[in-house]
Design a binder for these strands. Structure first.
Lengths: 252, 252
DNA sequence: CGCGAGCTTGAGGCGATTCAACTGTCGTGG
DNA sequence: CCACGACAGTTGAATCGCCTCAAGCTCGCG
């Protein structure tokens, strides 16, 4: 609802996305809403493959992704990469000085990425905590969400096979993207190459391709030209082992 | 140095271990040291397989492990388990009300585990933050360390093969145990069954056994009756891809 | 038109799994 | 005292999931 461009780069008002996500986690006072809307930061564009948030120095540079997809890769000495997680529009990077290892990991753009700085937000919480308690609560909820996603990632890599891993990831994306209005009757944008999917899922490019083809053949999900369409949610949820977000009980 | 029992259950003064770990992360004022030493909690014993920290309710029950090993398992619907991490003596469980997902995960004893409650510590930080800033800093460092270990766990599961995973884990244990004085010229206790190792590394029991045998055959490490002896640190570090903690540069 | 990036497909091999059996060690009880 | 079961570790054989190598395909774009 917030945006209708299929690539997910985003053209709408950046602050609205932020406000939407914050209010999804915590109620905000009128003063807080005004603060968010008045951020008025100039958006910055990042080309695919470039580092958005290096964090070499100690100064935190919290930024919000308002369009495009990014990742946190860990580079191994042999040149391979393992992605620790994905960043989607509405996700925050950098921290408020607590130097959390995940937040300090470099963030690399996978598509063209559009970001705005949200340093003023963080500063407001620090200088007047009681006045901006709602925002602080929402940011804390973001961090919890990040950690939850990371734990799911561990389970995915630790004890699921390839079809399960892909399904599990697609369900995670379904969840996260529907929270920011990017899912429209079972379809959502996913501008990841199969190579990137492999680095995320701990699989080879070739095998990702085969599993994608398999899910398409079985009419569970179809993935083409950067758009995922879920054709059989129950089967997908069964495979990826996640409850259907629309129903209370999982399908048996 | 703090204890000499090979099982790692621990019989020494509980508060000394805590003090040692805290001071390893942050300088403490005399008042802080006194607070820690005066905790005087009655230790509680937990049988293997029992849940130490259920966290069903909202109330945080922070406890310190003073002896024995525990884990944070994630149970899958098919009955298999994936361990999210290990808890060793000196590790803290539960949180200070921030409800971090990892901290809320149940903790299950792998050996006999000895714990003490440290609620008074947490409370002291909350009521008089400026007076106990050193302890607060140390606890924050603990959380960062936990997160770093978790990220390493992701890399291990995502893109290392079985010998690499085992080596990587052994190096992690070497690190963590030497920080609390459990490593004596290359040997340290590791009271994990090969079954538990499998759940941790995302491997089958049988395969863990073969890899253990292989490392022993190649005279890299020997694992028997709950004690690990590193026989060739350079080779182990090369395999597990971690820098030698004693040298600055890794062996090429 | 030709190039390159991403996707697709086949063949062969290795790594890890499963099933199954056997060993050694312990604590218990007849 | 030995028989017994429970538990952890060990080993073999067969299978399969996933990887690597290698080639061909299909776009979009200069």
């Amino acid at each position: 609802m917030l945006s209708s461009d299929p690539r997910g780069i985003g053209r709408g008002l950046s602050t609205e996305l932020l406000l939407h996500r914050l209010r999804g986690s915590s109620a905000l006072s009128p003063a807080e809403i005004e603060l968010v809307l008045s951020l008025g930061e100039q958006p910055k564009f990042h080309a695919p493959g470039t580092t958005i948030c290096p964090h070499e120095d100690g100064s935190p540079h919290p930024r919000l992704i308002v369009g495009g997809w990014a990742c946190r890769p860990r580079i191994l000495p042999d040149g391979r990469r393992q992605m620790l997680g994905l960043l989607l529009p509405g996700d925050l990077m950098g921290d408020r000085g607590e130097r959390r290892p995940l937040a300090l990991n470099p963030v690399i753009a996978l598509t063209v990425v559009r970001t705005i700085g949200v340093g003023r937000l963080v500063q407001a919480i620090r200088t007047r905590p009681e006045e901006y308690a709602g925002i602080a609560r929402a940011l804390a909820a973001f961090e919890r969400g990040e950690e939850m996603v990371l734990l799911d990632h561990v389970v995915r890599l630790g004890c699921q096979n390839a079809p399960q891993r892909l399904s599990h990831l697609l369900l995670e994306l379904y969840h996260r993207l529907s929270a920011i209005g990017f899912v429209h009757n079972g379809s959502f944008p996913m501008p990841l190459t199969q190579d990137a999917l492999g680095e995320l899922l701990g699989l080879s490019l070739v095998h990702v391709n085969r599993i994608v083809a398999q899910l398409r053949r079985e009419k569970i999900v179809s993935i083409r030209s950067g758009v995922v369409t879920v054709e059989n949610f129950a089967k997908l949820a069964l495979l990826g082992d996640r409850a259907d977000p629309t129903r209370a009980g999982a399908v048996a």
